[in-house]
Design a protein around this nucleic acid. Structure first.
Lengths: 213, 213
DNA sequence: GACGAAATATACCGATCGGTATAGAAAGCG
DNA sequence: CGCTTTCTATACCGATCGGTATATTTCGTC
């Protein structure tokens, strides 16, 4: 059951998350968080020890779901296309469900290397990246053409996915399973208009689309 | 000629840039910048008015070269592939020449929306984005299959380019004209090993990402 | 050399920073 | 009840925050 202190703890996390996501870790003071949560500073320090500890607890308790979803999505498909689509979809779903947290997570991805917040997030980012990299390492074993580039491929794919999420968080787009599939497709086959190899053949034989050769 | 005060101004900008890039705008105090530059606070405030003014001056005086290079790169090509390659190459060259500034610029791209530093950088980002978007709008007029997606395409391409730069700034890769061409190619045709429709037919031997020409 | 403007320093402002010593209130338990 | 443990508040710490009033130096120009 939820003891009152549990409510306090959760409230502190929630308010800290919203403030961090909006103003940045360095842009928010502990006092500000306490006021938003309706408690005083010793309470915060009793539960989380420090401002840094608060951020750590935030990520530890809520990013597990993302990593689990990614691990599940990357374990079920034999073909790279479906695997990437599933990963993109799982990431999109998580980001849509945890908008503030993912916004914070994204800002920290590119945060200054020596900043405290970046240091805290580094482990989570590395675990995230390693999961995706593993997908491409496995793909490299199946397809020699992709071998040896797992890091670069993972970075590019993750960049593409996070880019879409960044746009969606600013309401330039909506995250949907369809967009996830498109994202994976664009990554594999590009944005140039070409016949989709996964679609039913459209009687296009030997003719290229739009180059005047 | 360089008056002593010009040296002071330049030194302040340079030291502020290094500190901002490493620790983040909010993570650096004006006092810290002054010590690094060997001056005292009234000097900084005499020349730049405020901490924010310092950041604005930094971007105003040094991002013009990037925007000029992008405008030049996007005005010379008729085909999208060459245009994108030129843009990527110009961006890579700028980032390589201005590592600290581009690092700062990148962190601010994804910075929390309500942070002061993000507000300062917003105009520059929007101008940058508009330049790229214009390229895809023009491409959409030439190729109906690309019409109406200029925003999304620009965002994806910019994400891909910046992703490579981010990796390079952390020494995971080196920025080269060849990588720029690869980046444009990946964006258009994806990473999947498939024959390149724009290239003369040839026997593929597993080299996928390397196609630069 | 006189003089006014530009540039720099000394010393200080109130506010806020992250963090804490101490003690009272609440809750579980015999 | 009494005792212990957990939780929370009052009040405070030194340090640093961004910024400034004032005085002094430097410098180009006449």
């Amino acid at each position: 059951m939820a003891a009152p202190s549990d409510v306090t703890r959760a409230e502190l996390l929630e308010r800290a998350l919203d403030l961090f996501a909006a103003y940045g870790y360095d842009g928010v003071g502990v006092q500000q968080i306490c006021v938003a949560a309706g408690v005083t500073k010793p309470t915060l320090y009793h539960h989380y020890g420090s401002k840094r500890g608060l951020l750590e607890a935030l990520m530890r308790t809520r990013l597990g779901a993302l990593h689990d979803a990614l691990a599940a999505a990357s374990a079920r498909h034999a073909d790279l296309s479906g695997e990437l689509a599933a990963i993109a979809e799982a990431t999109f779903a998580y980001a849509a469900a945890e908008r503030s947290l993912y916004r914070l997570y994204l800002t920290l991805w590119f945060a200054p290397v020596r900043s405290e917040a970046f240091e805290v997030a580094r482990d989570f980012h590395e675990r995230h990246f390693a999961t995706i990299e593993q997908v491409f390492r496995a793909a490299g074993e199946r397809d020699p053409a992709l071998a040896g580039q797992a890091r670069a491929l993972a970075a590019a794919f993750l960049g593409l996915v996070n880019n879409h999420i960044g746009l969606a968080l600013n309401n330039y787009a909506a995250l949907s399973p369809k967009l996830a599939r498109q994202t994976a497709h664009v990554f594999l086959y590009g944005v140039a208009p070409r016949p989709d190899p996964a679609a039913p053949p459209r009687r296009r034989r030997g003719k290229t689309l739009r180059n005047g050769t």
